[in-house]
């Protein structure tokens, strides 16, 4: 059990540092999704299945979809601007 906790905390912290340091925005979104996934495993170990379910569905599913959609729109705006500049 303690190895699972240690592994998940390690994944969580490494993922969080990755979110701050990595260059690409898409990788940062994927890393934050991984943080949420490891967090939901820790919630299961802490005997909180409701919270784990919410974190898995919302944190690593919906939240990254929302972030990815926003990033997509930002990129589209940027592409359009470059088009109008040229």
């Amino acid at each position: 059990m303690i190895w699972v906790i240690a592994l998940m905390v390690f994944i969580m912290l490494v993922g969080a540092v990755t979110v701050l340091l990595v260059d690409s925005h898409v990788s940062a979104i994927a890393a934050s999704s991984a943080v949420s996934l490891a967090l939901s495993v820790i919630f299961v170990i802490l005997q909180a299945p409701d919270v784990a379910m919410t974190e898995a569905v919302v944190g690593s599913g919906l939240s990254s979809v929302i972030l990815a959609l926003a990033l997509f729109r930002l990129n589209r705006n940027k592409a359009k601007m470059e088009q109008s500049d040229a």
């Binding site: 409701d50 379910m53 569905v57 919302v58 599913g61 919906l62």
Partner: peptide
């Protein structure tokens, strides 16, 4: 485990 919030997101 589960309920309105999780099911709503699904």
């Amino acid at each position: 485990p589960g309920g309105g919030f999780q099911g709503g997101v699904i």
